[in-house]
């Protein structure tokens, strides 16, 4: 898949390079050579390479926002699917990595916002369109602050409350199961969960709402 002729032909050919020529000092070593070589061979090969390289770290990153494994995987799969379906992979402006991370963060952040503000519809994940435009530096920092703040809030929850929250969200366990495993009442589990959620809401929403209002 990474035979030399493969990408040589690709680089010298008339196919536009997804990576903008890096003229500045901090140019990243372009390690997407072999991915583009794979894409030159076929879409399947290209996407296989993309999945192998990026699927896991992208899920891990999305998880920082949504804290549910299934949702994180859904978001990442949907981004890959859209990229593939719309043939946008032929016209990716920067690197695939930039496109994928930007799209996943955009979706994961919106998912969290919609969940906390109660605007979430079952189709939220499908409907969110990612335009592929370059995000403003403020937005990028906003995203980073969001997942950091979320992590801080969860870290600072009382230990039992944190345990219940993670079992419910990350492990996707039923309240009854959690109660049985920890040997506590169902009511206590529910109280822990609502406490965790209200803390998160308080910490995240103040900043998210500002952005939300600003957009409208």
């Amino acid at each position: 898949m990474t035979e030399p002729e493969g990408y040589q032909r690709f680089d010298s050919g008339d196919v536009p390079r997804p990576l903008r020529a890096g003229s500045h000092a901090t140019a990243v070593v372009d390690n997407e050579f072999f991915i583009r070589a794979a894409f030159a061979e076929s879409s399947e090969k290209g996407f296989e390479a993309l999945f192998r390289l990026y699927y896991n770290p992208l899920c891990s990153h999305a998880l920082r926002f949504v804290y549910t494994r299934e949702v994180a995987e859904d978001i990442v799969s949907e981004v890959f699917y859209q990229l593939w379906k719309t043939d946008a992979h032929r016209s990716v402006q920067f690197t695939y990595r930039t496109y994928l991370y930007a799209a996943v963060r955009h979706r994961a952040y919106n998912y969290l916002r919609d969940e906390l503000t109660g605007n979430r519809t079952p189709a939220s994940i499908d409907e969110m369109e990612y335009a592929g435009a370059e995000e403003s530096p403020q937005t990028l920092v906003e995203y980073d602050e969001t997942f950091q703040r979320l992590e801080k809030v969860i870290k600072e929850l009382p230990s039992q409350c944190q345990r219940v929250f993670l079992m419910s969200r990350f492990e996707n366990r039923k309240n009854l199961e959690i109660a049985a495993e920890l040997g506590i009442a169902l009511k206590t589990v529910e109280a822990h969960l609502s406490r965790a959620l209200s803390q998160i809401r308080r910490a995240i929403l103040t900043m998210v709402c500002l952005l939300f209002v600003g957009l409208h």
Partner: peptide
Amino acid sequence: NLQLTTNWQNAFDATQ
């Protein structure tokens, strides 16, 4: 700093 491990092969197959 990975937070989880996933099976990219399954995800790739499903998307394909």
